[in-house]
Design a protein around this nucleic acid. Structure first.
Lengths: 219, 219, 219, 219
DNA sequence: CATGAATGAGACTTCATTCAT
DNA sequence: TATGAATGAAGTCTCATTCAT
């Protein structure tokens, strides 16, 4: 057939260790990781399955041992991202009761993630745009904090869905700015402060909450 | 670029088509309008030139008399939308000096546009996502208002780019909510109020500004 | 891309005359003819559209300018064959009133067709097997003759559907024998005689009818 | 039957598997049975080895322990069906000497089989269409009856191959009608009568023979 | 022998683009 | 310029077959 490269077929002298035993789980992860890498550098529309296979180092047909269709790949990637998202959110702010503080921590965590892991962030933004369902996943975590903040007298918003929509959009917008246009000093605090203010927290209080040390930051 | 004629693209070199450019312009507009209609109901990835030609009522080959490639069509559509956007913005708030009020008017105008013209709104959102340059067009108008508001002591933001990014994202997010999830009472005022608050306007003042009658609303 | 042959694409120095004006109709016919040729030499399952395109001398995508899917190609080929079939049947036996004679003429005509045009016959057999609807087309013509023959006291059958099924099957079986196993002397008369007898025509009478000169045979 | 050896593919070199061939034979049978079930509900083209393995309850790789290729599976299925066919034919009409009666019994037996076991019948029809060699297997049994009937003065046919071809085709056609279009009263007798008449048996005599009680029918 | 993940050729289909009329 | 048939690269998906375990 005179192929030119045949990257992931038979010889693969280097990754013999990948030929182990938990192959199935490993391959699935390779595929999902590869998909996230592609998302980070291209749009959803550009996730071609042969590209995905190549990036994951498997052959064309292997993708279909794990997903029944292209659509299912996209779903799975979205789900994967949502799971990673949950971990981001749940790890942090476990011991915090204030809804405002929790929201601030969440916003700042995401902003910092955007700074330290632009690829993951780009993938997230891509998926959120594509899969409206992703927003629901985000909203689930958010809603509790919004309601807590309101109960606690910190938040004053007229319409919960609008509030959630704007918090999510604004945060993603800020993350996008960070990822695309480069560094901004204290971007995480600035973003958190604006979000808090948007929800009715007075400027001074918003600045104070946004300036609290992040849990685990040692301080 | 340096092509010699560039007939239907951008500059229309003034020597070629002094005659018969009437129909030409009309066909071009048909194509752009058709593209917007398609954008509204599908994504960018789904703008097939076949479909575009059919929607515009011309044959597929004709598209290439006006655009050199699909890419150029997308660019032109983005530009077209930017122009319509300018009209939206400039028409309104001409006689208003307060940056905060001007911003409020802009946000509310867009929100109302989202309510009354969902197709145009969907197209706008689609294009903004696709063409990052679109954000710049929006930012141009926005920056003046932000700076005015700050000069006038209404806005207090720490980082102008962050502020612009969040205003744009939040507004588009709110528009999207309106378009996809249906009616919200006073959505325009709620959105404006939140945006103003995010920029540091105290709650009461933000509510007052967001509640002012829109110019031309008769009131 | 380093393709190796690219067989049916551009050069084709011989059929420059096909580049004429009635291209569309011509191409469609090329495709249908090619499909029949393929049917004759392979089964329905082997009608790959790239094979079809190559056989027809057009490119891969051109097929889809004429048919929306592979399924539609198969349908169209079946229909085409049915039309040619009608012509076969209707041309002959126009002036004959006897149902038995008409049936005999039909059987013999098909048998002779099998002798003189094995490819067409193989294609017919292939399609009949594949598309059950084809049998209906045949049955339509047949039913009238069966009923006429019965009214005229020649046919005596207990169940019309069974009778039609057996006439069709038997005739196609005989055609298949002719096509696959070679020459048989007076195959047309033998087949007609057996079919008539199966329908209750006494042996002598069946032999007589089957031996009548065919219309247009000059005799 | 004479079948007990032939466990693996074709020749079974006699030295290899003198032990443990019990399970092997069982798996092979599972595969063949599964193939027949699939044939009954789909075409030959749809017999995917994946599906076959699943239907047989083994993994896809296992198929290749019993057959060297898909082609060989198809052959084996044809052979298997031929064997089952022999059983059908030989069981019946052992004590009958008249060729006409034997043929009548055979036709009626198959017709009844079509009524009581549509799956087997569909598989048979599928295989006959696919494997031309199957017709030979049928012809072998048939030829003896045809010749006996002719010797005994019952059959009068002009060409033995044509006669066999038509008997087989007509019977299969009638079976197909029964299987696809549902019940027909006395379908077996009607079919037998028509076949006998086709072979030159006078109507009354054909009716009488076709109406004889089937051996084992208790009559 | 059994398993089932991996492979890759090949089929179907879409669509941006070209070009003769 | 307008037309629309033709093109072919590229993508989605299937499935017979191989092979390490």
């Amino acid at each position: 057939m005179a192929k030119k490269a045949t990257p992931g077929t038979r010889k693969t002298p280097a990754n013999t260790l990948t030929r182990g035993h938990k192959k199935k789980a490993r391959t699935r992860r390779q595929l999902l990781d590869a998909a996230l890498r592609i998302y980070a550098h291209a749009g959803v529309g550009d996730l071609a399955l042969n590209t995905l296979a190549e990036e994951a180092g498997v052959s064309n047909g292997t993708v279909y041992n794990y997903f029944r269709s292209r659509e299912e790949v996209l779903e799975a990637v979205g789900l994967e991202l949502a799971v990673q998202l949950s971990e981001q959110i749940l790890t942090v702010s476990e011991a915090v009761d204030s809804g405002a503080e929790r929201l601030s921590i969440a916003v700042r965590t995401f902003m910092n993630k955007a700074r330290t892991d632009p690829d993951w962030t780009r993938a997230l933004i891509t998926v959120v745009r594509y899969a409206e369902g992703m927003r629901s996943a985000l909203a689930t975590y958010l809603r509790a904090d919004l309601q807590a903040g309101r109960r606690q007298g910190d938040f004053h918003y007229a319409h919960e869905e609008m509030a959630m929509s704007m918090v999510i959009s604004a945060t993603l917008g800020a993350m996008n700015l960070l990822v695309e246009d480069g560094e901004v000093e204290h971007a995480d605090r600035i973003a958190a402060e604006m979000v808090l203010q948007a929800l009715g927290v007075p400027a001074g209080e918003a600045g104070r909450i946004a300036g609290l040390p992040l849990p685990g930051e040692g301080g």
